[in-house]
Design a protein around this nucleic acid. Sequence first.
DNA 1: TTTTTTGTGTGGAATTGTGGGGAAAAGTGG
DNA 2: CCACTTTTCCCCACAATTCCACACAAAAAA
Lengths: 147, 147
Amino acid sequence: MIQFLGNMEAKADTKGRIFVPAIFRKCLQSEGEEFLVLRKDVFQECLVLYPGSVWEKEVEMLRSRLNKWNREEQQVFRQFVLDAERLEMDANGRVLIPKRYLRMVSIEGDVRFLGVDDTIEIWAKEKLEKPLVDPDEFSSKLQQLMA
Amino acid sequence: MIQFLGNMEAKADTKGRIFVPAIFRKCLQSEGEEFLVLRKDVFQECLVLYPGSVWEKEVEMLRSRLNKWNREEQQVFRQFVLDAERLEMDANGRVLIPKRYLRMVSIEGDVRFLGVDDTIEIWAKEKLEKPLVDPDEFSSKLQQLMA
DNA sequence: TTTTTTGTGTGGAATTGTGGGGAAAAGTGG
DNA sequence: CCACTTTTCCCCACAATTCCACACAAAAAA
């Protein structure tokens, strides 16, 4: 089971290419992942990189539970794949992020990679400067949820 | 098993020709698909491109569930194949979409190709600008499905 | 510390993808 | 049979992407 952990800075060059941090790369390689899927997060202004196998599992799961002859369910499936794209790393270990996606999450220069479970998130650097949740709220929320 | 993923822009020229995005083309080629079938989606205002083999499977599936000696069921089957058309790509990798179909889904200039499972959808660009499903509805649906 | 290796940032050149249009061929209606 | 539209085939220009090479910084090894 694949697990990413870390938070490192990187920058998109003028062509929209970004080096995937070496630790993540090694992780992907050792798991034999051939490709990645890039997707805009549904709720947050960030991008999500799924290792191929993780993506496939997710889609398979959805496909099996959403009937394509049902209007609403098919629409949900469509929404899920709407902002997703297959990517491959180049010889140097970079991914080319299409301009459209950079715009969607307003990335211009510096970014941060964030390992979150079995996916990798890409944020505009500024957005991760301040905490996502208020620290006090965070601790009490956590306490409450894990009780 | 063939799987399309992605969302890219393209435009219909004055003759109604549209380039099939290169990634999809490669996908089709590697699966040895010789032709495509175009159809208006049953539920949405968009066009669907089926790889030949996918279309055949779909029809077979319908055929097996719809009794041809039942007047109503046969009529449904007929309607399904009525709005469908066989297409081939030209030497440059374009498909010529008959005007009739463009009108059906009100495509005039820019379009978006959308990989959805084993089919490719063609939408008028504007229609994909805003979310297809209300975000709250989407999240609750997903939450419920993946629980 | 010095050297080597690995990781990251940059850019140019070649290739491929996309948008467009012209002219031949094939249908269509008078 | 002719004029006219539609379809098919071919070629061109430009933009985007891929490939390749290099420079440099950081980390690891000697």
